[in-house]
Design a protein around this nucleic acid. Structure first.
Lengths: 210, 210
DNA sequence: CCTACCGATCGGTAGG
DNA sequence: CCTACCGATCGGTAGG
């Protein structure tokens, strides 16, 4: 692949791209946190000096905003796709949980940053993110409320149960090891089983392997 | 209460104490993270200037170390006290979970800091903390292994189940609201129920209120 | 407990 | 993409 254009005035294509910079930020923010990462570190990671970063990004805050907003939006669209057209309330809960857990195994860095550094996000992005998160939480809780109302789930407090289930999935990002014995899909499937058990639902066929 | 001693050379007792400083650090580290909190902020919180902090503490790192080490040691001793002399494996798991969840509801700030900023702890404290955490994790996992071996729990992967249960308790620190409708004890008890359901154990008497 | 001050580092800009 | 540099802020010390 060669440089596609060389219109007058535009600099020659360099090796470092915006994507590479955001990728480096993702890794370092996840490891050390937003405030624990210096732009100097990110620059070094991609082999340039700090000021050159500004050819690719607007600011350090811009890096955080991109990661957190994109991830939060994807959580919501993932959820909608997962439960769309599914009528059985057990299966709807299972799919919501499997999707959410899968994301936290596959996109560990993004998840860690969203949960650790959302407080460092400036307004108005922070409020947008919080609203989207609450929307997702409410939607999952409503599945539990519906299942409890129908007598399919035995749950005394849907708030408690939904937080426990959601946060159990979130924590996958903290301990999941891609080099470990289980695939993201296996971990996600097992969390679907855990969630149904937790709400006291009768097991779905084929979900309990001894 | 008056100043108890005034031995020659010792300065008069001031209003600011080491405890007050550590209390302020606890609140601010929990809110903004270790790297997001300046000593200046902590000093302002207790109404003094930054250099005066050093009459009470050794360094910023010393504040973090105190919080994280103490908390981690208490988790371990809590656990030992909770399961001591309990033979039934279901009851042992339930007590371990209730104790752990209760701590995360009552000591929210400490828990948030341990989980967010342990990476900022310098050696050798960091390794000490990690070892203690692994010890606790292993002990909980062994309860699950024992229950599974005895056929009381139906669990395909004790690692997965123990992480899910433990992290569900950890997350209590993130959403628990002391002003909310549930007491720490109620939340903790409910997590005991969740844990037993999650491992597929038959319910203990009186643990399921509709 | 304070003021004065230290070197180091931060995110970011000027200018090429 | 770079060097040179900015003001602000950091944790911490000197000295009283």
């Amino acid at each position: 692949m060669t440089s596609p254009t060389s219109s007058p005035g535009s600099p020659p294509r360099d090796r470092v791209t915006e994507h590479l910079v955001r990728e480096a930020a993702l890794t370092l923010f996840a490891q050390r946190g937003y405030h624990g990462t210096a732009l100097r570190d990110i620059a070094a990671e991609v082999g340039i000096r700090t000021p050159s970063l500004y050819n690719h990004i607007e600011s350090k805050q811009d890096l955080l905003r991109g990661i957190v907003l994109t991830t939060t939006e994807q959580v919501w669209s993932d959820f909608q796709a997962a439960v769309a057209g599914v009528n059985d309330v057990r299966e709807r809960l299972r799919r919501a949980v499997v999707t959410y857990a899968l994301r936290h195994a596959v996109h560990r860095r993004e998840a860690l940053i969203v949960n650790r550094d959302v407080e460092s996000l400036e307004e108005p992005a922070r409020s947008q993110v919080m609203a989207l998160r609450r929307q997702h939480e409410r939607a999952v809780r409503e599945i539990i409320v519906e299942g409890a109302g129908a007598g399919v789930f035995g749950v005394s407090d849907p708030f408690l149960a939904s937080f426990a289930i959601l946060e159990m999935c979130v924590s996958v990002a903290r301990w999941f090891d891609p080099a470990g014995p289980l695939s993201p899909e296996q971990v996600a499937a097992e969390h679907g089983v855990f969630a149904l058990r937790l709400v006291g639902a009768p097991a779905l066929p084929g979900t309990n392997r001894p």
